[in-house]
């Protein structure tokens, strides 16, 4: 099993405050997770915006490619971003 190698060093989607915009730089995580994320349009270069977090802090809601997508924090952790 591959560790999500880089989430300690860089900003991930999980760390972004609600309301902030960012650009995806890479999608890590285990095969299934990264593949699913990318198929839903979360690919390097895509713009994302964090809309809100659910009442218990997880999952979070983001806008990507013009639609709203909910993901658990475990998934958000594997998406590296740079704020824009």
């Amino acid at each position: 099993m591959k560790e999500a190698s880089s989430h300690k060093s860089a900003n991930t989607l999980r760390d972004l405050p609600v309301g902030s915009h960012a650009r995806v730089t890479s999608v890590n995580g285990k095969g299934r997770i990264s593949k699913r994320l990318m198929e839903m349009g979360v690919v390097p270069g895509a713009d994302v915006r964090v809309v809100k977090a659910a009442p218990f802090g997880d999952p979070i809601e983001v806008v990507v490619r013009g639609y709203n997508l909910a993901m658990r924090c475990t998934e958000a952790e594997s998406v590296e971003v740079v704020p824009v």
């Binding site: 699913r36 994320l37 709203n68 997508l69 909910a70």
Partner: peptide, 12 residues
């Protein structure tokens, strides 16, 4: 099973 990726569209 490992939890399947939870990715859910919130449609308009």
């Amino acid at each position: 099973a490992p939890p399947p990726p939870f990715l859910m569209e919130l449609p308009p």
